[in-house]
Every structure is written in C-alpha cells, then in structure tokens.
Amino acid sequence: MEFRILGPVQVYDECTGVLIVPSGAKQRALLGALVVKAGQVVPAERLVDELWGQCPPTNAANALQAHVARLRRLLPCGEPGSGRPHHEWLVTRPLGYALRLGDADTDAGRFRRLAAHGRELARDDPGAAAGVLRQALALWQGPALQGSGQGTICAAEAALLEENRLVALETLYDASLLAGHCHEVTGELEELVVAHPLRERFYELLMTALHRCGRQAEALGTYDRARRRLAHDLGIEPGPALRSRMESVLRRQDPAGAAEGAARAVAGPATGTGPVDEARTADDAVAGAVSVRMLGEELARLRGHVDRLTREHRELAGRLDRLTSSPVAGPRDLAS
C-alpha cells in the first residue's frame, strides 16, 4: 500500500493494482490530515476543524465518526483469502484517531528520501544526483494534497512540501549544470522562471546555463528581466547572489567578441602583441563596456531610490514639527 499526497489524495493498492480515491472533499481532507500525521494520534477537535473550519455541524463528533467509518471501509484490511495479512489502518484512541502505516509507505516519504540522497550525491557525482532527483520529482502528480480543502494541517503540509519540491528543483539543475548539461536544461529553466517569477535562484541558474551555452547577451537580459520583476512586484533590487552572477557573466568571454578577436588573430596582429593577447584584450573591452553601462544604470537607480527616501523623510519630519509646535494637536490634526 502507498498513501499518496503529492497531487490528489489517494491510496494505491500494490497487491491488486487498484487506486483508491476518496469521493468527497471531507473524505480527502480526513485522509490527507491522517497521512500527514501518520503514526500520531490526531485529536478529534483538530480533525473537526480540518473538515469544517469555523462552521462545524451541530453534532460534530458523530459526523466525524461517520467519515472515519466510511474511510475505514475504503481501505483494504486483509480479508481471508486476499493474500494480505490483516492490518487495521485507522485506529480509534481516547483523544482522537491515528493512521498506522505498518509496512506501507507514502509518496511524500519516498520523495524526501530520494531528494536527500540526490543532495548527498551532488558534490561527488552530479550526473547521478540529477538522475535521482528526477526520480524524486517524478512522484509529483500535481499540487500537494490537491482537493483536500484549506484546513490547517493539510495547508501547512502542502506549503512545506511545495518548498521542498522547489529546493529539489534547484538542486537538480545545479547538479545538471555541474555535469555539463547546460543545453538540455535551458528550456526547463525558462519555464521555471515564468512559473516562479519571484524566485531569484531560478534566474541565477538560467543565467548560468545561458552563459555556458555561449549566450551571454541572453544571460544579461535574464538578469534585467529579474530586476524589473522584483522591482515591480516587491519593490526590491536583486540579491547578492544574483548580482554576483551578473558580474561573473560580464567578466567572462563574450562569444561575439571572441569570434571577432579570432578573426583578427587569423589576419595577423597589426602590432607586436600575440593573437591570444589581442583576443583577450578585445574580449575584456567588450565585457568592460557592458559592465560599466549596466553598473552605471544600477547606480542611477539606487541614487534615485535614496533621493526619494530622503524627500519622504524631510516631508515627514516637517509634518511632525508642525504638529508638535501647534498649541493643541487634536485627533484630526494627528490623523492628517
């Protein structure tokens, strides 16, 4: 048996190949909460809150018992002749209910184990790490605990699992780049940037992939796209990691400049310098010009931001001086 919450809440019976899907939202919420807290007694009051929130039925305890009874009937318990030992999945305790996994597993548990193994492999064998991480991410069939309502247990676990998924994706593409697969992952990273436009790490990975594919201009354009989106949605500038990536792209060889330098080297240098030195000088000049322009633009933006904050500070200080110097500062004056 495998209890699945990386997508719709369901149970896969490996003995029969049958997929057990609770039909109602309350059943999915109940099963989802018990899977999240597997092996623990979940108080009846918490389960009532999980299923009905602020609007519980008149006799909530009886209604919860009815849902537990229906869920018990859904789960195979090992009838005689079924080829499976008897196992009671849902147990009643004085304070609530518990799901006993026994030899069963959950897809969330498998995902976490594979993701941890992938992280362990990443440093010494990034190619193998990428393969393991793809296995982990393939377990996802949709948003975690999909269709299980907005109860506190399921909502908190869904948010935690989603963050774990994003971290696993970051580790996967970091390992893929270390393994030299920049061409294979560029398109996937483009999709992730669109899907998660405020996650700077995906922009950083995309810039790295583009630059290693010889697409320096697109890598710099990705930084500019990230900067504009962060400024528009959050009112902030890119963080140190993303700025550092932009600077490293600028410091390295520009493909167009390299081709131009190589052409000059074939034609022969006009001065006494060697072809390698001349190509390097041309590349440094191109990267330096772009760097000065982009850093100048960023400095101008920061200067404008500081000027705006200074003006707002002066205005607030002036208002405060006028209020404190007034003989009587009534509530209307303070509110203005």
Rank of each mutant, 00 (worst) to 15 (best):
M1G: 10
E2W: 09
F3R: 11
I5M: 05
Q10R: 15
Q10I: 13
I20H: 14
Q27C: 04
A29C: 13
L30W: 07
A38Q: 07
G39E: 06
V41N: 02
V42I: 02
V48I: 15
W52V: 14
C55M: 11
P56S: 13
N59S: 06
A60G: 02
A61L: 02
A63S: 11
L71Q: 10
R73M: 10
C77Q: 14
E79R: 15
P80V: 14
G83R: 14
R84C: 13
H86I: 13
H87R: 15
V91K: 00
L95K: 12
L95G: 04
L95C: 09
Y97K: 06
L99W: 02
T106K: 06
T106S: 12
A116S: 07
R119H: 11
R119P: 00
A122P: 05
D125A: 11
D125F: 08
A129D: 09
A136R: 11
Q141V: 01
Q141D: 10
P143K: 05
Q146I: 11
G149D: 14
Q150T: 14
T152N: 05
A158N: 10
L161G: 09
N164E: 14
R165P: 09
V167W: 06
V167M: 11
L169R: 13
L172A: 01
L172W: 00
A175H: 09
S176D: 11
G180Y: 12
V185Q: 08
V185C: 10
E190W: 08
L192A: 15
V194S: 08
A195E: 15
L198M: 15
R199I: 15
E200P: 08
E200I: 02
Y203I: 14
Y203K: 15
E204I: 08
M207V: 03
M207H: 09
T208P: 05
R212L: 11
A217T: 14
A217Q: 12
D224Q: 13
R227T: 04
D233A: 11
G235F: 00
G239T: 10
A241D: 15
A241I: 06
R243K: 06
L250H: 03
Q253Y: 11
Q253F: 04
G257P: 12
A262Y: 11
A263N: 07
R264T: 01
R264D: 02
P269K: 03
T273V: 13
E278T: 05
E278I: 02
G288Y: 04
V290L: 15
V290F: 09
R293M: 03
L299Y: 06
R301F: 03
R301M: 06
L302A: 05
R303V: 07
R311V: 02
H313D: 01
G318F: 01
G318Q: 01
D321P: 00
L323K: 04
L323R: 07
T324K: 03
V328D: 04
G330P: 01
A335R: 06
